[in-house]
């Protein structure tokens, strides 16, 4: 029997999880404080996934870049493909949080969405609000 030690990344508790495996089959999962830890451990040993965050280029905006994330976690081995594909993506301002900037990234079936707002150049951005 094989023993794997993991740290759950689902919340800041960072529980140390011990997984006992027998020929690729999970026999027991211990050390997690909640159910999410169990799910994480199972997935981490069979199909590890991560949410990817980066930036893409913006044209005609008050900022040259906007921050983005994958709408869902994608397989870990696709992270670099995802970031590489996004290097070639350019979006036109204005950009709003939640706008899809690329779909089916790196063949994962997952969309990439903006996590920031960028106004068009020339639009006056208020120096004061709600006055």
């Amino acid at each position: 029997m094989e023993t794997k030690n993991l740290t759950c990344i689902n919340c800041p508790m960072g529980c140390s999880i011990t997984v006992k495996m027998d020929g690729g089959r999970i026999v027991s999962i211990t050390g997690n404080t909640c159910k999410r830890g169990e799910d994480y451990a199972g997935k981490e040993l069979t199909n590890p996934t991560r949410i990817v965050t980066t930036t893409v280029k913006v044209t005609g905006g008050q900022s040259n870049t906007v921050s983005v994330k994958t709408g869902k976690d994608i397989p870990k081995e696709k992270i670099f493909d995802c970031v590489r594909e996004l290097k070639n993506v350019q979006v036109q301002a204005p950009v709003r949080i939640g706008d899809v900037v690329a779909s089916d990234i790196a063949g994962t079936g997952v969309d990439v969405v903006a996590t920031g707002n960028v106004e068009r150049t020339g639009v006056d951005v208020a120096e004061a609000g709600n006055v």
Binding site: T7, C8, I9, C11
Partner: peptide
Amino acid sequence: GLKRNIVQ
């Protein structure tokens, strides 16, 4: 730092 950041 946070443990989750060391892993990820």
